[in-house]
């Protein structure tokens, strides 16, 4: 399973994400500069966290206009797995691959801590290794994670099982309905504010991110034969 990790000026979790794929899955991964738009040879794309284009204008807004987004949109259309972490989630919202928008945290503070999440839907390629309602611990690090959508969109997300992760207990940013991660209707595009790549070894304080990556690989193997 060949992964692509797009890199924008200002991405800063790209190396961590590449490490996670190599260390957890032992699968090939290639860093792809945002000026390239051809992602045909890849099986999955993970848009890393960071501050693409310095978060100018709005988080993710300028990255959403990069040439690579064409390749990402194409991959999503083909049913390939696309995961956006933190700034990657913000970029997916700005491109319209996921519904809604991101606001500044309601308390205006940058939050860097381990957050407790509950896995709300395990019927997705990203969460099939978790159990329904499982409580996991994954770090967050953002000032702009206050997810917003209108009432109609929220009902749709709820009814179609597109809310994948919710904050369990404290809501660290004021997001609507405690949303920490959502997917598209087809369930092959996931955006999440917490950083699973920062929860893969005991020394990191949690290994709960491992199952997200192994779920992706398991899904891919089941759909494409052996890796």
């Amino acid at each position: 399973m060949h992964f692509a990790v797009p890199i924008f000026p200002g991405s800063n979790c790209d190396r961590d994400t590449i490490h996670a794929i190599e260390d957890v899955l032992d699968q090939p991964v290639t860093a792809v500069w945002h000026q390239d738009s051809d992602l045909k040879k890849f099986d999955a794309i993970i848009i890393p966290g960071g501050f693409s284009y310095g978060d100018y204008l709005r988080t993710g807004a300028l990255a959403a206009q990069s040439p690579i987004m064409e390749g990402i949109r194409e991959a999503a259309d083909q049913g390939k797995l696309v995961l956006g972490i933190c700034n990657g989630f913000q970029i997916l919202l700005e491109t319209g691959l996921l519904p809604g928008a991101m606001r500044r945290n309601d308390h205006l503070q940058f939050r860097c801590s381990i957050s407790r999440l509950s896995v709300e839907n395990t019927q997705t390629p990203f969460t099939l290794g978790f159990s329904q309602g499982e409580q996991i611990r994954i770090p967050i690090a953002h000032i702009e994670g206050n997810y917003y959508c209108d009432e109609e969109t929220l009902q749709e997300l709820q009814q179609k099982g597109q809310i994948i992760f919710r904050y369990a207990g404290e809501n660290p940013n004021g997001s609507i309905d405690y949303i920490a991660g959502i997917c598209n209707e087809r369930r092959n595009v996931l955006g999440m504010m917490p950083h699973p790549e920062r929860a893969i070894f005991d020394w990191m304080g949690s290994t709960d991110g491992v199952k997200l990556f192994t779920s992706m690989l398991q899904y891919w193997k089941e759909n494409n034969g052996a890796a």
């Binding site: 206009q65 519904p99 928008a101 917003y148 959508c149």
Partner: peptide
Amino acid sequence: KLLANPVM
């Protein structure tokens, strides 16, 4: 397309 986000 860019300067405003119609969602909010």
